[in-house]
Computed example of a mutant assay.
Amino acid sequence: MKFEVGDKVVIQHSNDEGEVVEIINDKMVLVDVRGVRFPAYTDQLDFPYFKRFTEKKLFPPEKKPKKYIDQLPPEKPAPGKKKERIALLADGVWLTFLPVFDSDEFGDEVVESLKIYLVNNTSVGYGFSYHLNYFGKSDFDLDNRIDAMQDFYLHDIPFANLNDNPVFECEYTLLKPDKTRAEHFETTLKLRARQVFSRIEEIRKKGEATFSFKLFDSFPFREPEETVDPRGVLSGSGFRIYEASRARQHLEPARSELDLHAEKLTDKPGSLDAFEILTLQLQTFEKYFDLAVAHHLPSMIVIHGVGTGKLRDDIHEELRTKRNVKSFVNRYDPRYGYGATEIFFEYGKK
């Protein structure tokens, strides 16, 4: 290993100086640059003294008059320059994965495990309760907090565990309560091994160290709550009363026809790569499938297009494991060709 924990290093592409704080493997380390930590490949780093001795100085350094601490102006951040973070991500809260590589018995580079980080690129701090489930069974739980514009290391998972359909669930609360915002907020991320394999290939080609999934943009506002109390007794005592038979009225409307083409789901489809579009499509499908079941729709048409068939295959794979699915079919239809799947639901007796 070229570097050890505590070594001072220089980031070649940015010329920033930092310190090695963790050895990830023989090709990657965790570097701290002015309080910001991120992974870096060792071939992208160098020792500061090598940089200083190899710099060509055409002129001797100019002697400047001494300045005392009370003479220095307050430091101002350079305009337009942001802190370098674990990943260059847009605003929002993200789940970021760092593949840890190792060599197998044949000398080939393989992914041994994934380091998982919660990345908060918002101006608000959150308390969070994180859970990792396999086939509905809890495997890892963590309660903690993450401040604004910070990264939080969660844990590692073996790469082979991706074959066990991991589900990442997280519930958030505001560190500073806001009466206009919801009391809590939940997100769920389901990963499939094939998606992660293709994502890792993409970042290797680009020379990047991590890949990420956006969990949400901003904490939602509080929704108005309706109470029903014909006698007024309980509500007068401070209790909130809900009528179960009207619960569906408070859900978002279901769709009997769902179009998953990228231009129907986002205003800027060109800004997303193929993997991000597929992830958005599958998350949208999950959302409206659940709404269709909640509203007891008899059937639902999902328009996935023809293309390579990857989106269709992933949806069919999900449908085979879903409760309340009586059957589904992908047959020719004059309106969609073979680019749509019709789902038929069944519900238990009341």
Rank of each mutant, 00 (worst) to 15 (best):
M1I: 12
F3P: 01
D7L: 07
I11H: 11
D26C: 10
V33D: 01
R34C: 07
R34N: 07
G35C: 11
V36T: 05
F38T: 09
P39D: 04
Y41D: 08
Q44H: 14
F50H: 10
K51V: 07
K51S: 08
F59H: 12
P60W: 03
Q71I: 05
P74T: 06
E75W: 05
K76V: 12
P77N: 15
G80T: 06
I86V: 09
A90G: 15
G92I: 01
V93C: 11
W94V: 02
W94C: 01
L95N: 03
T96M: 09
T96K: 02
D108G: 07
D108W: 09
E112K: 04
S113W: 01
L114Q: 00
I116F: 02
Y117L: 11
L118W: 05
L118E: 02
V119M: 11
V119G: 02
T122I: 11
S129M: 08
H131A: 15
F135N: 13
K137P: 06
D139E: 13
D143C: 05
N144Y: 10
A160W: 07
N161A: 14
N165Y: 11
P166K: 02
V167R: 13
V167S: 14
F168C: 02
C170T: 11
Y172E: 07
L174E: 08
L174S: 08
F185A: 04
F185Y: 15
F197Q: 04
I200T: 00
E202H: 12
A209N: 09
F211D: 00
F213L: 03
F213Q: 04
K214F: 05
K214W: 04
D217T: 08
D217Q: 13
R222S: 14
E223P: 07
P224T: 14
P224L: 05
E225P: 05
T227Y: 07
D229A: 07
P230M: 10
G232W: 13
F239Y: 11
E243N: 09
A244F: 14
L251G: 08
P253I: 08
R255M: 13
D259Y: 13
L260A: 08
H261V: 01
H261L: 06
L265F: 13
T266F: 05
L272V: 06
F275P: 03
I277M: 07
L280M: 14
Q283P: 04
K287P: 00
Y288T: 02
D290H: 12
I301K: 10
H304Y: 01
H304P: 01
G309M: 04
L311Q: 00
D314H: 12
H316E: 15
E317I: 06
E317K: 12
L319T: 07
L319H: 12
K322T: 04
V325H: 04
K326S: 11
S327D: 14
Y332V: 04
D333G: 09
Y336P: 00
Y336D: 00
G339V: 01
A340N: 02
F344R: 03
F344H: 07
F345D: 00
G348Y: 15
